[in-house]
Design a protein around this nucleic acid. Structure first.
Length: 434
DNA sequence: TCTGGGGTCCTAGGACCC
DNA sequence: TCTGGGGTCCTAGGACCC
């Protein structure tokens, strides 16, 4: 599936939104400007985005809401996540950035790589123009890092964020080896892209404390003691590309839909509702990328945090033939659920994962002599397309499979006490201001 | 009372085969 | 019949990312 990769370019920018989710909320509520704001995860569980003002209050990433709630008295504003809004703002931001170069790799909801190779002018100037245009046209503040490799672009972006005198743009491309090492010798190794919470301490213990240390470490040793991934990171830090460039998004190989519940769930019937809804959502994503799944995994678990009877289990249910039909996926998911469910436990979370995901080749091309009758399959495909269209136009609750139907007070539904209106995505919310 | 969701890639080890 | 070596495929688990 990696058909759309090519050799990486030699001048790469990494552009990302500062405190992206918070910035999206501020665009539509300018009164939040200058105030400490955080966005909460699903179920208002913990902080997943923080403005500079909120960071200054000492709120760490992932801080549980119940522990920082008291900061509201000091002006903290907490908002429930509104992913429809963030997705919409992301589309706008990516379109504006894409005007600067045809080669753009969207890496996550708030960041993208951009190939600047061959564009006229110094990287600093280009980066500054990108920042200004995104701020003016979309309202999102960004930082731009530029380097000879993706890893260096990420690192430059990190410097652009942490050193105010750079004014949001840092260009490490075109530096000689010695200059480059000087530029990165104060960056802690744990801030390097690809070094996480396990590798960081381990590297530090063996004397590799900075990005420059990692760049200059013996690659064979890195490869032997850690992995090929880390050896490639070291290579990239020296300005030698080791990570491919992807022009087009590669289709997902697995598709998940999973949620923690608002309140613990004991009933099989309630779990069935939740799993049915998760399966429908996953199936929509599957059809959107025009794939089929060969197996369905279901899992349920009690809370990781509460003491008491603990149970977690998952089941993989293979399908007779790859499919994208909600009804078939649902049958598999529910049979998996029944096989792992045990009465008497307070379940806190359930999830559905579609596996063996591959392109949706026409039924006739599968060469199945005794395969499914193509006519019902075609009918099913048309029905699914209509359902997806209606749900997209009128909101995702428009058409649901019967087993997912539930009242508005279902225990497993998410808590979202701090939800802002859907300004950009729902007609009913358009008018309100501030 | 109260701690998110959705992905990728690599590796080690077992099963199986010649 | 006391018994090597190499290859492939699959899976579970761990590391990372946002």
């Amino acid at each position: 599936m990696g058909a759309q990769t090519r050799r990486p370019p030699s001048r790469i920018a990494l552009i990302d939104g500062n405190s992206f989710y918070c910035a999206c909320e501020r665009v539509l509520r300018p009164a939040l400007e200058g105030r400490p704001v955080i966005v909460l995860s699903n179920n208002d569980g913990c902080a997943i985005a923080r403005t500079a003002e909120a960071k200054a209050m000492g709120i760490p990433m992932g801080a549980p809401w119940f522990r920082i709630q008291h900061l509201q008295a000091r002006g903290l504003v907490a908002l429930s996540a509104n992913f429809a809004l963030y997705g919409d703002m992301s589309d706008r931001m990516m379109r504006v950035i894409g005007q600067f170069s045809p080669a753009q790799e969207i890496y996550s909801i708030d960041e993208c790589f951009l190939d600047l190779t061959g564009l006229p002018g110094p990287g600093r100037d280009i980066g500054t123009r990108i920042r200004q245009r995104v701020l003016r046209w979309v309202g999102i503040p960004t930082c731009v890092g530029i380097g000879a490799t993706k890893t260096l672009a990420k690192l430059a972006n990190h410097l652009a964020k942490s050193l105010p005198r750079l004014q949001g743009v840092c260009d490490l491309s075109g530096l000689g080896r010695a200059e480059l090492m000087r530029a990165i010798r104060h960056v802690p190794v744990r801030d390097v892209w690809g070094v996480g919470r396990r590798l960081g301490p381990s590297l530090e213990a063996s004397g590799i404390r900075t990005a420059a240390d990692l760049a200059q470490a013996d690659r064979h040793v890195l490869r032997r003691r850690y992995s090929i991934v880390l050896a490639k990171t070291a290579q990239e830090l020296c300005g030698e590309p080791a990570i491919d460039w992807e022009d087009a998004p590669t289709p997902r190989q697995q598709i998940m839909s999973t949620r923690s519940f608002g309140l613990p769930v004991r009933d099989l019937a309630e779990l069935e509702q939740a799993v049915s809804l998760f399966t429908s959502r996953a199936a929509e994503k599957l059809r959107r990328q025009q794939s089929r799944a060969g197996a369905v995994q279901v899992y349920i678990r009690t809370s990781r945090f509460r003491t008491g009877p603990w149970h977690a289990d998952s089941a993989v249910v293979p399908l007779d033939a790859p499919t994208d039909a909600t009804s078939m996926l649902l049958r598999a998911a529910l049979s998996g659920l029944r096989s792992v469910f045990r009465p008497g436990f307070d379940y806190a979370k359930a999830g559905v994962c579609l596996l063996d995901v591959g392109p949706a080749a026409p039924v006739a091309m599968q060469g199945e002599l005794f395969g499914p009758d193509p006519e019902p399959a075609a009918k099913s495909a048309r029905a699914m397309a209509v359902v997806d269209q209606l749900n997209q136009r009128f909101g995702s609750r428009m058409i649901q499979v019967a087993s997912a139907l539930h009242g508005p007070d279902a225990r497993w539904q998410m808590r979202q006490a701090h939800r802002s209106p859907n300004y950009t995505t729902a007609w009913g919310d358009v008018v309100r201001v501030g």
